Amino acid sequence: MEFYNSNGIEQLEPVFWEDGIISGYRHPHSSALDCVLSSFQMTNETMNIWTHFLPTWYFLWRFVILCSTLTSLSDSYTWPLLVYMLLICVYPFTSSCAHTFSAMSAESYHICYFFDYGALSLYSLGCAMSYGSYMMPDSWVNSWLHQHFVPIAVGNSVFCTSLSCYSRSVTPQGIMGKHFECLPLGLLSKALRTAAFVVPFIFDTVPLFYRILLFFGGGSTDHLSNHCYHLLFAVLSCFLFTSHLPERLAPGRFDYFGHSHQLFHICTVAGTHFQMEAVLADMTSRRAWLTAQGATPSFLGTFGALVVSLTLNLGIIGIFSAPLLSCFQKQRRASAS
Score class of each variant (00 low, 15 high):
residue 276 M to S: 09
residue 38 S to Q: 06
residue 37 L to W: 10
residue 322 A to S: 15
residue 55 P to S: 08
residue 160 C to V: 08
residue 50 W to P: 00
residue 61 W to G: 01
residue 109 Y to N: 04
residue 64 V to W: 06
residue 318 G to Y: 13
residue 153 A to P: 00
residue 163 L to M: 04
residue 303 F to M: 00
residue 121 S to K: 04
residue 35 C to M: 02
residue 304 G to N: 02
residue 186 G to N: 13
residue 66 L to C: 02
residue 157 S to L: 06
residue 317 I to M: 06
residue 140 W to P: 10
residue 72 S to L: 12
residue 19 D to M: 09
residue 88 I to Y: 08
residue 146 H to R: 06
residue 196 A to T: 05
residue 326 S to Y: 10
residue 193 R to K: 10
residue 99 H to C: 05
residue 328 F to E: 14
residue 169 S to L: 05
residue 105 S to M: 14
residue 61 W to L: 13
residue 320 F to H: 09
residue 1 M to E: 10
residue 74 S to R: 13
residue 42 M to W: 09
residue 72 S to C: 04
residue 311 T to H: 03
residue 160 C to H: 00
residue 81 L to H: 11
residue 4 Y to G: 14
residue 98 A to S: 00
residue 281 A to K: 11
residue 105 S to R: 07
residue 59 F to Q: 01
residue 57 W to S: 14
residue 57 W to E: 06
residue 279 V to F: 00
residue 283 M to A: 14
residue 210 Y to G: 11
residue 44 N to W: 02
residue 65 I to D: 15
residue 121 S to I: 01
residue 296 T to V: 15
residue 183 L to Q: 13
residue 333 R to W: 12
residue 149 F to Q: 03
residue 124 S to F: 14
residue 48 N to G: 12
residue 149 F to D: 02
residue 146 H to E: 07
residue 261 H to T: 06
residue 325 L to V: 03
residue 202 I to F: 02
residue 314 L to I: 03
residue 270 A to V: 14
residue 186 G to Y: 13
residue 291 T to A: 15
residue 108 S to F: 08
residue 143 S to L: 11
residue 331 Q to D: 15
residue 148 H to I: 08
residue 132 G to A: 00
residue 8 G to N: 09
residue 204 D to P: 03
residue 314 L to P: 05
residue 281 A to P: 07
residue 62 R to M: 13
residue 326 S to R: 15
residue 243 S to A: 09
residue 75 D to P: 07
residue 9 I to G: 11
residue 329 Q to T: 06
residue 316 I to S: 08
residue 89 C to E: 00
residue 303 F to C: 05
residue 94 T to P: 00
residue 185 L to H: 10
residue 190 K to R: 15
residue 82 L to C: 11
residue 36 V to I: 15
residue 28 P to Q: 05
residue 3 F to S: 04
residue 154 V to D: 02
residue 213 L to I: 14
residue 251 P to N: 01
residue 73 L to K: 04
residue 85 M to I: 02
residue 186 G to V: 10
residue 195 A to W: 07
residue 289 W to K: 11
residue 18 E to M: 14
residue 54 L to I: 12
residue 211 R to C: 06
residue 298 S to V: 05
residue 298 S to Y: 11
residue 84 Y to E: 01
residue 204 D to M: 10
residue 27 H to L: 07
residue 49 I to R: 08
residue 98 A to C: 01
residue 208 L to V: 12
residue 65 I to S: 12
residue 183 L to Y: 15
residue 116 D to N: 03
residue 272 T to H: 05
residue 215 F to L: 12
residue 239 F to T: 10
residue 244 H to K: 13
residue 114 F to V: 01
residue 244 H to R: 15
residue 100 T to M: 07
residue 205 T to R: 12
residue 211 R to A: 14
residue 126 G to F: 02
residue 303 F to A: 05
residue 14 P to N: 05
residue 52 H to F: 03
residue 279 V to A: 05
residue 141 V to G: 08
residue 14 P to S: 04
residue 62 R to P: 04
residue 296 T to A: 11
residue 38 S to W: 03
residue 202 I to W: 00
residue 122 L to H: 01
residue 132 G to T: 00
residue 87 L to Q: 04
residue 22 I to F: 08
residue 37 L to S: 11
residue 319 I to E: 03
residue 98 A to E: 01
residue 306 L to H: 01
residue 335 S to W: 09
residue 137 P to W: 10
residue 78 T to E: 12
residue 286 R to D: 11
